[in-house]
Design a binder for these strands. Structure first.
Length: 770
DNA sequence: CAAAATGTGGTTTTT
DNA sequence: CCACATTTTG
């Protein structure tokens, strides 16, 4: 496409932002102001001006954003050129660079990426090994502290030396965080693993300690663009600064009013101070909102102006005034859900143009989706919930992927722990503990011990040693196969060889079925990935690349963009960057939105307000706010007060039905709440006292059934291989192996319906069947 | 050794 | 309430 043609599609300020390519620029892009358009056109413009696409670095926050932008650029410029762009998330781009440069950091090029679950599990083990109380040192909290440190580029050495941090930990009664951090980092290194934060921290270390490497990249990338700059943390900010400081050809785009990720270390000062960091930087403001009606934009403005710290701008809409923002109050979360469902049905009746996909329901926390789902289901409204776990984070999928991870890097301790006894192969907790203890003692990875148990005097008996050895051999075989087989063939081989496939088939339970289906889905995903890579011209699809990609994938990324017409349910965070014709924002209550954690902290509160701003500005035509006076939370019904944010919106833009609720009734709310509270208490007490009685019964029956197995046979008494036996739960089966004696005698039984089990005869009540 | 039962504690958002 | 971690039971 001709450059002039697409430049003409831009408004004045957008066009200026696109055409300025000489030095640093900051584009302040109000909500709905065509930010993505500016970014994509600017990249296309750069390409048209002769910049080679492979020398443009464009950083985004989600893979989805990167993918969509690539597609749009492909349409503007040559698709072949678009492919060569270095465009992706911070994490995926720098993971790629770190693989190239891994040797400088003494990491393996095939390093594993630990996700949050892996890190937490490792931290838990370390806390245990150090003999610390995991109530005092809660793994989640320790993880957060380490993560914050890394995002602020505080290495464990710097941490130990920081008076402020160490004293802070003392005051919080967790003085040993620094030691946990130190060990954690050592263990990651030993496992050849980097966690999410390492991808940024290690990149910084790489650039700091290896000037030639830094030079290579800062000369290579001729132009750098960063999307959502308001959400960058210090580590990201510094990487960008390092790469661009020589030539200053950098363009960052963002909106300080939409900075909502400080919990992840994002620092709003990065955007507020950008102009000071890059002297001579040009600032472009995109203030015309093309997305929403005037009422929505004005309401959102009235809200955000309650915040102190912000870059001055005037966002406006030239669309029709549109309808006011609705506000509905309900008695419970349950009613709220049904009211939203009813409203959706009503709006579809009134306007046949409303498809289900035109609706979104946004909430503060994922837990709120449950009631909403129930209401939508009962009203036969199709919906799709976004968020929560990504497909690749599910237990059964992670289990399978762990084998892949071990193939690439057997020192990966977390993967080893997952699969050494999955499917069950008789390597129990005792053995695993011994293995891990030895690894800690000798300061090597568990795999090293596994490969050479004698040298490290692993205290296991011959039987266990054989099992460990065969596990080791299996992984080695996979590694060999990885050299010769394609990724698809390897997948097939691993699923069969490990017995995962038959293990899942055997499982007759509902969850078992869905696990099996998920495993099939994974196989499909791998095949699609391979096809895609081959289309892109990759000769051999590398397992490392696949693992790297899935580790950094989120739920939003694997939306198979189903074309089906469904209502969208997601958190406000997840909705950032999206737009819908009709938006419901639910649960506008104190301690929920704004969340409890933020109420005594002005900065946090301002962030919550920005979050609400993001939510409102998702709406194109209609925006409805709801809140409930009571809500079922953490197993209890809580009384709720309306959110303070409702008062921040200028009432001129609000439409409050007289018969339901008036803003001036905030104070008179209390009397009815107290009344509600009492009724709830009475009801709860009643149900509690009743529910205790029937609980006794199953216990009685269970006791009697246990005694009925009086004809259980004595250990080893007359059992041989081939004996048919019966078991209370597993049914009938045949003994296929016997080992050990006395108290440790153990039988391997193949049950007709429950598969092969190993049972300790001391405990298992087997009956001989004639 | 493996499965069931019982605690426990935590709930903000996620690359 | 729910997920998970630990303890108990077979």
């Amino acid at each position: 496409m001709n450059v002039e043609v697409y430049l003409d599609q831009l408004n004045q300020s957008q066009r200026e932002a696109v055409e300025y390519t000489d030095g640093a620029s900051l584009v302040i892009a109000g909500a709905g102001s065509g930010k993505t358009r500016v970014l994509t056109y600017k990249i296309a413009y750069l390409i048209s001006r002769g910049v080679l696409p492979q020398r443009i670095l464009a950083l985004t926050f989600t893979n989805k954003a990167a993918r969509e932008m690539k597609e749009r650029i492909a349409r503007l410029a040559e698709p072949e050129l678009a492919k060569r762009l270095w465009m992706g998330t911070f994490h995926s781009i720098f993971a790629r660079i770190l693989r190239f440069e891994a040797t400088s950091l003494e990491y393996p090029a095939d390093f594993t990426i630990y996700d949050a679950t892996d890190s937490k599990s490792l931290i838990r083990s370390i806390i245990k090994e150090m003999g610390l109380d995991d109530k005092q040192y809660r793994p989640g909290m320790v993880q957060a502290r380490i993560s914050n440190a890394k995002n602020a580029l505080v290495t464990f050495k710097a941490y130990e030396q920081s008076k402020e941090l160490v004293e802070g930990d003392m005051r919080s009664n967790v003085p040993l965080i620094r030691e946990i951090y130190r060990r954690y980092q050592a263990r990651c290194f030993q496992a050849g693993a980097m966690d999410f934060d390492d991808l940024l921290l290690q990149t910084n270390i790489l650039f700091r300690d290896h000037p030639t490497v830094l030079d290579k990249y800062r000369n290579f990338f001729q132009y750098i663009l960063v999307d959502e700059y308001q959400d960058t943390n210090f580590a990201q900010h510094l990487i960008v600064l390092r790469l661009s400081e020589l030539h200053g050809r950098i363009c960052v785009v963002g909106d300080d009013a939409q900075s909502i990720y400080s919990f992840r270390g994002a620092n709003i000062d990065n955007i507020l101070q950008f102009k000071n960091q890059y002297p001579g930087c040009r600032i472009f403001k995109l203030e015309q909102n093309y997305r929403s009606t005037q009422n929505i934009v004005d309401a959102a403005n009235s809200l955000i102006h309650k915040n102190e710290r912000q870059i001055e701008k005037r966002v406006y809409s030239k669309k029709e005034p549109g309808s006011k923002i609705g506000l509905i109050s309900l008695y419970s979360d349950y009613e709220e859900a049904y009211a939203v469902a009813a409203k959706i049905i009503e709006m579809r009746m009134n306007d046949r143009l409303n498809a289900y996909a035109d609706f979104a329901i946004l909430y503060r926390t994922n837990a709120q989706s449950r009631v909403l789902e129930e209401a939508l289901r009962k009203q036969a409204i199709p919906y799709r919930v976004y968020g929560g776990l990504s497909f690749y984070q599910r237990k059964e999928i992670k289990d399978i992927l762990s084998y892949f991870r071990l193939v690439v890097n057997p020192h990966d301790e977390e993967s080893l722990k997952r699969v050494i006894n999955y499917p069950i192969r008789g390597i129990g907790n005792t053995t695993i503990t011994k293995l891990l203890d030895a690894a800690t003692e000798y300061m090597v990875s568990p795999w090293t011990i596994l490969c050479d148990p004698l040298t490290y005097a692993l205290p296991v008996n011959a039987g266990t040693a054989a099992k460990l050895s065969s596990f080791k051999e299996m992984i080695l075989t996979f590694q060999e196969k990885n050299q010769t087989l394609s990724l698809e063939e390897l997948t097939d081989f691993i699923l069969k060889e490990t017995g995962i496939l038959s293990f899942l088939v055997q499982d007759q339970t509902v969850e078992g079925q869905s696990k099996f289906e998920n495993a099939q889905e994974l196989v499909k995903g791998i095949m699609e990935y391979c096809d895609m890579k081959r289309e892109e011209g990759e000769e051999r699809v590398r397992l490392t690349d696949f693992l790297s990609e899935v580790a950094l994938l989120t739920d939003q990324d694997n939306d198979r963009n189903e074309q089906t017409d469904k209502v969208t349910l997601m958190t406000v965070h997840a909705a950032k960057g999206l737009e819908f014709k009709n938006v419901f924002i639910v649960g506008l209550e104190e301690d929920l939105f704004p969340s409890m954690m933020s109420k005594d902290n002005t900065r946090a509160l301002e962030e919550e307000r920005r979050l609400f701003y993001v939510a409102i500005t998702r709406a194109e035509e209609n925006c409805v706010l709801t809140y409930a006076k009571s809500r079922f939370r953490n197993g209890k019904t809580m009384i709720c007060l309306p959110s303070r944010f409702l008062r921040d919106i200028d009432s001129a833009y609000l439409d409050v039905p007289q018969d339901v609720f008036g803003l001036d009734t905030f104070s008179s709310e209390r009397s009815s709440s107290t009344f509600q509270k009492n009724t709830f208490l009475i009801n709860e007490n009643k149900s509690v006292s009743f529910s205790n009685i029937p609980k006794q019964e199953p216990k009685l029956t269970k006791l009697s059934s246990a005694t009925s197995t009086a004809n259980a046979i004595a250990p080893l008494g007359g059992l041989t291989i081939g004996t048919r036996v019966g078991h209370m739960r597993f049914g009938e089966g045949e003994i296929i192996a016997l080992e050990g004696e006395g108290g440790n005698a153990k039988a391997t039984v193949c049950f007709e319906h429950s598969g092969v089990k190993q049972l300790l005869l001391k405990f298992a009540k087997l009956t001989v069947i004639e």
